[in-house]
Amino acid sequence: MSNPILDVQNLRVRFETHHGVVRAVDGVSFQLHEGETLGLVGESGSGKSVTNLALMGLVPQPPGVVEADKMSFEGRDLLSLSDRELRSVRGNDISMIFQDPMTSLNPLLTIGRQLTEVLEVHKKVTRREARQICADGLDDVGIPLPKKRLDQYPHELSGGMRQRVMIAMGLLCKPKVLLADEPTTALDVTIQAQILELMKRLQETHGTAIILVTHDLGVVAGMSDRVNVMYAGKLVETADAGPLFEQPRHPYTKGLLASVPRLTGDPNAELDSIPGSPPDLAALPPGCSFAPRCGLKTDQCTTHTPTLEELPTRATSRSSACFENARLTDTLIADTLDYGDRPQGGSFA
């Protein structure tokens, strides 16, 4: 496979608070390739958003401390960049769509002012050109009358429109990596469907790699090539989307998938739920963080911490951090070939 565009090894982010040290991200490693969508799922407080903020260099330090064995973008080490160099990457090569369109836009500035600012910082363009590029950007994301919108203020637009403005802003410089933090969570489903279609289309035309942070497993299923599951700051499972949903391996992933209400299947069946609640990051239990809620818990789980291990499969790589891996003997689904629009190798029928 080609070189990864983003390569993160053993990323650790901790916050030193009055209540003790909070390890928000604890040893996360992953790679992202061009044109790929990586889903990042987990409950609130599992470290999904902080991972993204760390990639953008946006973790406030102090109280935050960001460390990693490696965190590189196209071979450049993001951690050793100066503020100035980082600014030339951020918003230009790597950009971010924030969760809340209501609060992420400045209410005092027109849409046009906020959009052209991005171009003024990163590209050498005249104001007139910048305005034209921004209008085209708004047009790309399906906003009617883009020229008129440039002179409007955020409050004059609906939530869906504002989120589209955020997406347009994130895409203005044609970034190579887009970090989308719950891009559709604040939106209604019909608008969500529009935005997701749009992100897919833009990915196809620009080859952008996307990290999609969300707690909505339906959105992840439809968008992602690979999925990372996080729990209490750690990666507990990583796999291609198809095999992960078909045959989740880690007990947390299994529990998560079982607890999602669905539009298919028996509506009268009781929903499975994971007992208990997510742990306090400042006072994590010893051993596996998921052990107190896990049905497969053994003594080993409360004394030792499992690491992410590669599982034996034929075609795709998948890993899970659980002591039960060795014991579970079921065969894993190795191929992703029967998943819809994936390339069908060798068939010319």
Binding site: V189, Q192, A193, L217, G222, F245, R262, T264, G340
Partner: peptide, 15 residues
């Protein structure tokens, strides 16, 4: 439309 907009947590169905 509302129903069709709900994403299914299953990549097979989604694709």
């Amino acid at each position: 439309a509302l129903m069709s907009a709900v994403p299914h947590p299953d990549p097979k169905i989604e694709r």
